[in-house]
């Protein structure tokens, strides 16, 4: 190792590696940002990897049991592709507004970002509303959690997705509120919104997978 490097001031080395402050804004430690990503973003990526395994297992369970239901109603008896297409479209739109919120924040425009966050949350809430309607409609048609393997797998899988959307709605609303009240460190705002956006897009993508493989495939066959 070079004596040259040894002479370097550690703070310079640390600074060169870049600073970031995780955990919502404290400067606990010299963060060396070795991977070129802020802590919180890296954490979100790792978390989403973990979530992939989670939804992978749920969707895998759905397909493990696909076609094995011993009693009706079956998917083709209850699915209404039209209604679900609308709610899917709304969720897709929310990804767009979410991207706009992230972008607005990058432009240091918190008010716009806040508005887009609210719109996104509303779209998400509407999606959840559609899901609540869909569930109650299915129950009306005789499909309950305990009716068959289809009922169990369908409700649990889509229910946990809906739960994730709900968590997202709460998160985005909270973020909008905090921005509105100015309670967050302005320096941290872009990254906070961006990370919320990552989560939101992920939850959207999971829905695309579910919509394609669970709903659409049923009608292609």
């Amino acid at each position: 190792m070079s004596a040259q490097l040894a002479a370097t001031d550690p703070h310079e080395v640390a600074d060169a590696a870049g600073h970031d402050h995780g955990d919502h804004g404290h400067h606990a430690v010299v963060e060396n940002n070795f991977m070129g990503l802020p802590n919180i973003k890296l954490a979100m990526w790792a978390f989403l990897g973990s979530e992939c395994m989670f939804f992978g297992s749920l969707i895998g369970t759905y397909f493990f049991y696909h076609g094995k239901a011993l009693a009706g109603p079956l998917p083709q008896d209850v699915f209404s592709i039209g209604i679900t297409s609308i709610s899917t479209f709304l969720l897709l739109m929310s990804s767009l507004t979410m991207a706009l919120a992230v972008d607005a924040m990058k432009q240091r425009n918190p008010a716009t970002a806040r508005n887009f966050l609210v719109i996104t949350a509303l779209l998400g809430a509407t999606f959840v509303g559609f899901q609540v309607y869909e569930f109650s409609h299915f129950v009306h048609l005789g499909l309950k959690l305990s009716t068959s393997l289809f009922g169990s797998t369908f409700y649990v899988m889509t229910g946990f997705h809906g739960g994730h959307v709900t968590v997202g709605v709460i998160w985005l609303s909270m973020l909008a509120l905090l921005i509105h009240k100015g309670k967050l460190n302005p320096a941290k705002l872009p990254i906070n919104v961006e990370v919320a956006g990552l989560y939101w897009h992920f939850v959207d993508i999971v829905w695309i997978v579910i919509f394609t493989f669970v709903y659409l495939l049923e009608f292609i066959q």
Binding site: V13, N32, L42
Partner: peptide, 13 residues
């Protein structure tokens, strides 16, 4: 998640 980030990102220079 916490420790993956810690080890990847917080190493000494």
């Amino acid at each position: 998640v916490n420790f993956v980030v810690t080890i990847l990102n917080m190493r000494a220079p």
